[in-house]
Design a protein around this nucleic acid. Sequence first.
DNA 1: TATAATAAATAGTATTACTACCAAAACTTA
DNA 2: TAAGTTTTGGTAGTAATACTATTTATTATA
Lengths: 227, 227
Amino acid sequence: MEFQLQIKMNPTLYVRDPESSALGKNIIRHGIQMIYDVGFEHFTFKKLAVDIGTTEASIYRYFENKHRLLTYVTAWFWTWMEYQLVFHTNNVTDSRQKIDTVIDLLTFQQKDQFIVEYVNKEMLHGIVVAEGNKAYFTKHVNEDNKAMLFQPYKDLCHRIAEIFLDYNSKYEFPHSLASTLVETAYHQMFFKEHLPRLTDFGNEKGSKSLTRYLQYLVYSCLAVGNQ
Amino acid sequence: MEFQLQIKMNPTLYVRDPESSALGKNIIRHGIQMIYDVGFEHFTFKKLAVDIGTTEASIYRYFENKHRLLTYVTAWFWTWMEYQLVFHTNNVTDSRQKIDTVIDLLTFQQKDQFIVEYVNKEMLHGIVVAEGNKAYFTKHVNEDNKAMLFQPYKDLCHRIAEIFLDYNSKYEFPHSLASTLVETAYHQMFFKEHLPRLTDFGNEKGSKSLTRYLQYLVYSCLAVGNQ
DNA sequence: TATAATAAATAGTATTACTACCAAAACTTA
DNA sequence: TAAGTTTTGGTAGTAATACTATTTATTATA
């Protein structure tokens, strides 16, 4: 059973809602593809326009610049992750099981419950791993943050933090641990692939070691002062 | 007592050694200042040239492009960090004390033992916090890695990993924990300043909470299966 | 069907990233 | 010390990028 998913995005993220037209959806679909393929630095609206068969100016009517497009797709991703988390932990009472679900989601092991025709989730995941940071490592973080552009990321982290508190109500740094868990999951994935000496995962195929590493990390931290 | 420090950099990092001339040193000094001030995206060789009173082309004789300059200054930083670590843990036998030193260094609390006239370490630290990631989150990580451009970072992490093993020889993921510790220290610092909802440090002035958070993180993980 | 409103394309500009070529300085060597 | 040669830095460009003002086409409404 799958659901059609419509994610409502913060209007500040776009000039014109990309979901409101075929061109807008094409910008998202081909944009994800192209950022994934050539990397964010080499991605330009000009190239995207040629690829779609439209013009630069038309793309600028949807997004202020390429950075906003990146922020849009990452925000979309975090919202989608939160949906998944809610879906998979619904009716689960055991907080340990919820934590395991969080880690499975982060390591991209849960199968998807939602389809969105113009979003390729595997590619989007790849973008978040390799370029996600660039959405907020800018000189204009503070303004972007005030405009709530990072709300989806913060919401996800807050939800994870609450699960941590559910597991151990005395733990002092649930939000820091949540953001650390998320960042670490993606960084270690990137390191495993490109800078393996920064990890201990060898050249193992899947993400079994990574999962175990993250589990130890979280459960060890949460064990402090428990009971 | 302070030492004059000369850090030997990998020649692939530059076209012409910036330490070999006054202009080269100016490029480093003003480059650090400018990346710190305007951020890496808005930093250009043209602006730097105007600031120094030289030309773009002259800067290109020292660095292939601005990304290489970023990689150079971050590599310099990691090398310097490793020097500091070696210096401060020399003759220390207690591995717990060594770990505390690592965390103090990462949170920038140890006072500096070395001077280099044309490098402002506070600014460089700020650059590593806010832009450091961008040195390796690129499409050309693999080539850059093959050219050993990230060796200083890997060396530092390896040294930290060895301290972890010294503390608990059974711990399975010393390198991952080392890179996680380093990345987390800088990310949490950035979040504390710009996205405080992703942390639990409130609006505390110093980095006391961060230090405590990192200590719990490391010691909890290393406690697993110890003794 | 006329009119307004919206969507998208044309045709630009300023800035950025980079390069080929040139000139001055300084360092050799005769 | 004069001529040659290397080193160092500058001039003057180009192609690509990031963006905008204006115009044209399309769609919706009266």
